[in-house]
């Protein structure tokens, strides 16, 4: 079963009385342990596609099936639950809860569901170790460097053992060397868990970390 199946998805934004077509009949299938690089210039619709795949935005038209479940018709409450249980997000810029430590930023998503607390703590510690943050778990986000925050966000995305990991421009705020390290970390973590992932980037040098890459421009996917 594919991790994600998008068929003829359209998304238009209305701003004032003009309509912006952010995504135009996009179709995409992602294998259950496939890593896809989504490449395109700024404003081409990458974030929009990711948000729709992750149940954060609803498409104007078309169908989105994640892990066999059609999500385009779910209501807000069901979508919230879907995001909590099935998806791991890393947003475009690092997004951590500022009043929670690195470790708590991981734990908070586990605590949203009814997961075993002890298991969650072990899982958080394992992830922090793997991401080389073993000794930073007690630090607040403002005590961490940009690369460290990015890694915490990646750990959090993997925390709930999601079927689909969605990562938006993880390297844009980092220099090339750090960016490559982060990409390597992401692909290692995702591969070792046989999870499907979409990694958005506008840097074509990063695409070799993925199994496959797809280009997008002006809301249209190129095969």
């Amino acid at each position: 079963m594919p991790a994600l199946e998008m068929t003829d998805v359209r998304k238009t934004y209305r701003s004032g009385d003009t309509e912006v077509m952010a995504l135009d009949r996009a179709s995409l299938t992602l294998g259950d342990d496939e890593i896809l690089a989504l490449v395109g210039p700024s404003g081409s619709g990458k974030t929009t596609l990711l948000s729709i795949a992750g149940g954060l935005l609803t498409p104007s038209d078309g169908s989105v099936v994640v892990g066999g479940e059609e999500i385009s018709s779910l209501d807000a409450k069901a979508l919230t639950r879907f995001r909590r249980d099935k998806v791991g997000f890393v947003f475009q810029s690092v997004n951590l809860v500022p009043f929670l430590t690195a470790r708590e930023n991981l734990l908070v998503v586990a605590e949203m569901g009814r997961r075993d607390a002890k298991e969650s703590r072990q899982r958080a510690d394992t992830l922090l170790d793997e991401l080389d943050l073993g000794d930073r778990g007690g630090n607040l986000p403002n005590q961490l460097s940009g690369g460290e925050r990015q890694r915490v966000a990646i750990g959090r995305a993997l925390m709930n053992e999601p079927a689909l990991v969605l990562i938006d421009e993880p390297t844009s705020a980092l220099d090339t060397k750090l960016g490559e390290q982060v990409m390597e970390l992401i692909t290692n973590e995702v591969k070792s868990r046989s999870t499907a992932a979409i990694i958005v980037t506008h840097d074509t040098r990063m695409t070799h970390y993925a199994d496959r890459s797809v280009e997008i421009s002006d809301g249209v996917l190129a095969a």
Binding site: L56, S93, N95, L96, P98, D168
Partner: peptide, 14 residues
Amino acid sequence: DATTVVGRQNLGGL
């Protein structure tokens, strides 16, 4: 609105 989080260049209020 949960969607405010996407694409916004911030650190969650940091």
